[in-house]
């Protein structure tokens, strides 16, 4: 039986197979999985906001897409992952409430996804799969053993990416 490691909001964790990583009830936040398929080492960060430079209080690195990814890579290389091997899978960034007006805060999900993609591409990390946007929450599980990301949503068939 795989052992599941939970990752909370604005938090991150790393593991090697046979351990696995999960984050429950992702809404507008984005769950970013980084994976070294050769060493079978994975990391998961649950970011809340796109950009640490726009926020004064930015001591928690895992809260932001930009610093969250940097810190996660550091955590992973510390347990033996090789940066050049890393690939990623991402999920989340939903718009939970269908606000009619174009308030900036309401598009936070989209902006989180966009910032995540920009950051990954600037680091040359390929996104192998994504399940982002729309208007529903997601629970994700990542298994370094298989490299598969399992996604559960309410009233929908589970997905495996």
């Amino acid at each position: 039986m795989n052992k599941m490691i939970k990752v909370g909001m604005a938090d991150a964790n790393v593991c090697k197979a046979p351990y696995a990583l999960t984050t429950l009830g992702l809404g507008s936040c984005v769950g970013i999985v980084l994976y070294d398929p050769i060493k079978k080492i994975a990391g998961l960060v649950h970011i809340m906001l796109p950009d640490s430079t726009k926020i004064i209080n930015n001591s928690n690195k895992y809260k932001f897409a930009d610093t969250g990814i940097d810190s996660l890579i550091k955590d992973m290389t510390q347990i033996g992952a090789c940066k050049a091997n890393l690939v990623s899978k991402i999920a989340g960034g939903a718009q939970m409430f269908s606000f009619g007006n174009e308030q900036e805060m309401m598009r936070i999900g989209d902006r989180n996804v966009e910032a995540t993609k920009n950051k990954l591409s600037s680091l040359g990390i390929k996104i192998l799969a994504e399940d982002t946007g729309a208007n529903y929450g997601r629970t994700i599980e990542f298994y370094p053993e298989t490299g598969k990301l399992h996604i559960k949503s309410v009233g929908k068939e589970p997905k495996i990416l």
Partner: peptide, 17 residues
């Protein structure tokens, strides 16, 4: 939806400060 997903919306607002 899931409580965590719904509560992420106010949590993000606090995340800014």
């Amino acid at each position: 939806d899931m409580a965590g997903a719904i509560l992420s919306v106010p949590a993000i607002e606090f995340g800014k400060i």
